[in-house]
Nucleic acid binder design. Sequence first.
DNA 1: AAAAAAC
Length: 526
Amino acid sequence: MSADDQNAQEAVTFADLGLSPKVLAAVTDAGYTTPTPIQAGAIPHAVQGKDVLGIAQTGTGKTAAFVLPMITRIEKGRARARMPRTLILEPTRELAAQVEENFIKYGKNHRLNIALLIGGVSFDEQEKKLERGADVLIATPGRMLDHFERGKLLLTGVEILVIDEADRMLDMGFIPDIERICKLIPFTRQTLFFSATMPPEITKLTEQFLQAPVRVEVSKAASTGVNITQRLVKSGNKGWDKREALRNLMREEDATLKNAIIFCNRKVDVSELFRSLVRHGFDAGALHGDMDQRARMAMLAGFRDGKLRYLVASDVAARGLDIPDVSHVFNFDVPIHAEDYVHRIGRTGRAGRLGKSFTIVTKSDAKYLDAIEKVTGNKIEWHDGDLSTVVQSEGEDDAPRRGRGAPKRGSRKEESGRPRRARASEKPIRNPVADVVEEAVMQHPAPTAPAETQSPPPAQKVRREEIRSQNARRKDAPVERPEPRPAEERATANTHRGRRKPDDMADGTVGFGDDMPDFMKVAVKV
DNA sequence: AAAAAAC
């Protein structure tokens, strides 16, 4: 490449990409002048209506790479009732909500009707938005198909289809849904397709559903960024050992720790660790897929706004979520799949900043650790001596005061499942923010119960009856759940489900009155 | 040894 070419490339600005003046103005207002490689590569083609195959990780500016040209292209024209003009499919609810935020930010000079169709929230409002005519429809596949089957949605008017995070959709078993949806949309559409990797199934999908796509590939972010300091931390096998190791680490790092995500492999452990950290006075929140949708939103908002310094999370938070400025990532568990390690620690050290990651390792993690070191291609240093120096703690798991014989896996969780009131005398919770949040996460009777729960439309009522009869044997089985849930999982569920009246929890913050932090109120609007 | 996603 000549020096001139290089200069020319450096000189690329958003103004050179063919975006409309109104979109450009919004981009400028947001403070951006220079597009990222994926944006510079994809936008010029996308604004011309071409199909694009974008191969890019999250954190590369991928979302704006489709949002900006889409707004440009739908400037003219209006949506008709139940016939959205564009459809964006996302694998998780949070990602979908995040894309909506992007449309709001960059569409501020337009009058866009945006509809967000995700599970876990009421159908009513979503239907209203569809009825009004959506310029932009953002959805997770399940809820979208649900609306479609109810006849609330016609896909024949879709001009632009976006499939985001295709490889993750594959992991999650969404590909049949995606194929079905693709077939429902006219062939004359424009398709923008994004995936971080291109396994054979995904390649097949692109061959089937893209027409002469422009392929834009941005250099794979070095599997683990050089600006992330990675360390391993030894620990005994027990949950108790690991939690103590984590707390020590958190205290050690306190001076330089701005905020941190703490990953667990399992949802139960997210809940348990969250409760434990709160009891120890850390202002932590929690995020996993079994939580009430309102609480998920509230947690994320609280963490982003800096109201919560720690977020204990499952891998729902490992990819794609845009949480800027995370200074630390802690792996409470070694991830079972090596790629997850890369994604998790990739939540720190973004945009060239420095980041730190610590992974708590026990003797039984050896093989997973090997896999990680193989994938990332480097040996990770031990923080403070390796596993050979670990002292295993004695005793029956981490509930020593419970009688012998009792601790089946479920009963061990009793402590975390017990109502908070009973615990209050043991250890005062010193953290009001997390305390409020705990109410929201662990007891998820949506105070303004989703409308469909109160008056399900006939079709759904029938389905519910089926489920109810399936569960007839189990008196306490939640009707929404076809499968009986294991005891330990119930630690995350609402123990009062079905027993409390909505009036008892007018605003969902039982017993906290005026102490509800602002971010909770904001997030609750969903 | 997992998580996620419709009800």
